[in-house]
Design a protein around this nucleic acid. Structure first.
Lengths: 201, 201
DNA sequence: ATATACAAGTTGCACTTGCAACTTTCTTAT
DNA sequence: ATAAGAAAGTTGCAAGTGCAACTTGTATAT
């Protein structure tokens, strides 16, 4: 059997979206897992007052879906910000008994587990940061986590500083202020997106 | 084959811990999933300054482990607060190729996925709350989520109010102050652990 | 019945933060 | 090369919050 046909049987589909399009069918169903194969999309939350706020950036290999990330169909839109290719897994189809017998199925599930574990780790890292009450503490926790991952005292952000403020869920200007305090206290050096940790960790 | 033997083959073990004991072997390995079958335990985080803080309460059916919750062996201890029975799944053993052929394996993985999805949902709910910048907003988001789950305007907490402050990652007294403001504004009524939503939602 | 422990609730105060309203610097497209 | 837009960086101020230090209430055990 062809891999392609198998994927269809397992409830896995590949979709392409143009820049600006809404990745709509994916979130209507409540048991779906999406993986960004290529491109860039954003989960946008529409607040009760009409405010739209970016909830999550979805780059290559990002995972989303009701079970995995905080997307609920009522208040969320997923918009392709570039031409984007998405793999959609229909979980309820995937778990049909007739699929359970498939040879490939195990490997597939096993990979799925790895993807989910990764997402778990990321989310838990963020919770550890968000749990800190003060901006300074949040920043230090963030640096600590990044340091543990890279084993380097030089942190290079692959996103804008204003996005770091969103990640920490604090006001942008307040974060800049605190970064300055940390610089003044000679705990860090900041040069654009490069942050250097000066203290013992 | 007996289920018992199968579980061993799959790298699944059942352990019992007495009150006060550390659930130590579980977190030494970095690829483990634990499920509390019975009892009560806590994940305790030891900060660099020696402070111990309860990171998570693990009741019946709670799931923990490096891939799933924020436990890293260096700074975390899991302590049984009552006599506790734990199911430990060794993920690296579980995923051995020879297991992939097993009939039960699929069902097992499928259940595991459900457990993980649940944990995902819980964590994402908390992130949604933690993302709010102000205590009032955090509380309102929390009420909103609880309301969506129960479809009732009466929220009954099955934990102490001080634990709600921890969940929201805010100061306890500041939370009480804000609860009072919400009461004054006639948005809620609070009676012990019972909270009644008075506004349209 | 009384002591003990823990949760609930309150308050003043200093510090932190969000918000608004800027200026400056850097990117990107034409 | 230049305009337009976005990100970086600042600052004043009012409001929000953490912290400490209480009091009151409520279980639980002896």
């Amino acid at each position: 059997m062809q891999i392609g046909k198998l994927l269809v049987l397992l409830g896995v589909h590949r979709y392409k979206y143009s820049k600006g399009e809404e990745i709509i069918p994916t979130i209507k169903n409540d048991n779906i897992i999406g993986i960004i194969l290529d491109g860039f999309a954003q989960i946008i939350n529409i607040e009760y007052n009409g405010n739209e706020l970016v909830q999550e950036n979805l780059g290559k290999d990002s995972v989303f879906g009701t079970t995995i990330s905080a997307t609920n169909s009522e208040s969320c839109q997923i918009i392709a910000k570039e031409d984007t290719e998405v793999l959609i897994i229909d979980y309820s189809r995937l778990m049909r008994p007739e699929n359970l017998a498939h040879n490939y199925f195990n490997i597939f599930l096993s990979n799925l587990y790895d993807i989910m574990s990764n997402k778990f780790r990321e989310t838990n890292e963020r919770v550890k940061v968000l749990e800190k009450k003060q901006i300074r503490e949040k920043l230090l926790k963030f640096f600590e986590i990044e340091h543990k991952k890279s084993h380097s005292k030089n942190i290079y952000l692959n996103f804008a500083l204003k996005d770091l403020a969103d990640y920490l869920a604090v006001d942008r200007s307040a974060m800049f202020r605190e970064l300055k305090h940390l610089k003044d206290d000679k705990l860090i050096e900041v040069d654009g997106r490069k942050i250097k940790i000066l203290y013992e960790i």
